[in-house]
Amino acid sequence: MTKENLFEEPGLKQITVWARGVYENKEARDVVVAITEAAASEGRFVQAWENYVDLPDRIYVPVRAYGKISDQEIKSKYVYENEAPDIVALTEETLVKGVNILEGIKPGAVLVVNTRRPAGYLFKFIKQGTENLSKIVTVDANSLAKSIITLSGAEGATDASGIGKGMGAALAAAIVKATGIVQFESLLKIVGNKNAAKKAFEMADVVEVKTLVRAG
């Protein structure tokens, strides 16, 4: 039995959102849920879930939420992580420092950060994985909407506080602007805070990595 390329999923896009434990769990989950729901409304196959092994009940601990979008049925269904993200997003800027956020990214991957600082400044902190990174997108999502702190929606339960009511809506919009992973109109239909999404879509600053100076 040949093994070569047997389990590759060429059309599969992976989104990994990093956040800070407890106070941003919902926002990270909202980003992947909003984008995958938007993709599903466009007739694509999707999956969304939160990392199960991170320690989501500890404040500030780095946590992750994942999304998968494909034009074909998703084959790698029951896994723990996104092994090769196409999009990495950070709900909090400090995650660029000391956390290997770009691990496994595909060539051409995009990093989207909720920050007021310029991409060039953040880039200096990223020590690993930048050779495959094509763009850094910055958006001051905190100025557009607050982070909603809730346990509703934890452990796979329904988030009764509503999808995309907070800062996640803005971050999702910035992702869509930079990557075109879904139509912006599809995203707008899903998120609660449409205003924040619209403003973020305008405001988000997309910078090509080749124009930036690499870390030491």
Binding site: V33, Q47, A48, W49, E50, Y52, K77, Y78, Y80, E155, G156
Partner: peptide, 11 residues
């Protein structure tokens, strides 16, 4: 149901 795989991943 298998914990996490079935119980936590949205389907």
């Amino acid at each position: 149901q298998d914990g996490y795989f079935v119980s936590h991943i949205f389907g």
